[in-house]
């Protein structure tokens, strides 16, 4: 399969789904660890919670569908050389990031995963593949709804959110 092609059968969809959920779980955990390392525990806890949810999803995939047993070569994933859709890029982080900003990034990541599965549904050549992709769409839509709900609990950051009383660069 060429990079940029959507998975065209059950096996490759499972491999993609497992990679998406597993990489998201690892990334959320890495981001949680980064936040704990600079004492931003509130955001660290949010990322850790998201890591747990994604890890559970990856474990379910592996258990129910044997997805982990169908790994593919890196070049065969539809996202080619890009990050898998549900991983927040490392470069987006800031040590003073606030929950609202962290959840906005998470929402974008969850929406990318939802869009990926939706595209598979729309392009599926068989009912079997469409049904499986629809399952993933439902699951991902739940994650999107959950992150949206969490987002409402946190105010948008003040304009001076990144002001540090002990800045790394002295003026």
């Amino acid at each position: 399969m060429n990079a940029a092609e959507k998975p065209g059968n059950r096996e490759t969809l499972l491999a993609h789904a497992y990679a998406i959920e597993n990489e998201a779980a690892e990334r959320y955990q890495d981001l949680a660890d980064q936040m704990y390392a600079c004492n931003n525990t509130e955001v660290g806890d949010l990322f850790a919670k998201l890591a747990e949810i994604e890890a559970k999803h990856a474990a379910e995939l592996s258990l129910e569908h044997g997805a982990a047993r169908t790994p593919m070569a890196a070049a065969d994933y539809a996202w080619g050389n890009l990050e898998s859709p549900e991983a927040i890029p490392f470069g987006e982080m800031h040590y003073l990031i606030q929950p609202h900003q962290a959840l906005t990034l998470a929402l974008a990541a969850e929406e990318r995963a939802l869009a990926f599965y939706t595209d598979v549904v729309n392009q599926a050549p068989t009912d079997d593949l469409r049904n499986l992709a629809e399952e993933f769409v439902l699951e991902e839509a739940e994650h999107v709804a959950l992150v949206r709900e969490w987002l409402q609990r946190y105010p948008e950051p003040e304009h001076d959110w990144d002001t540090d009383d002990d800045p790394p660069v002295q003026p």
Binding site: D30, L31, D33, Q34, M35, Y36, A37, C38, A74, P89, F90, G91, E92, M93, H94, Y95, I97
Partner: peptide, 19 residues
């Protein structure tokens, strides 16, 4: 756990090295 500043490019490079 790396102690680099969040957002530092070195996180992605560590990932690239392990991949």
């Amino acid at each position: 756990k790396p102690v680099w500043c969040p957002g530092c490019g070195d996180f992605s490079i560590l990932m690239a090295i392990t991949m």
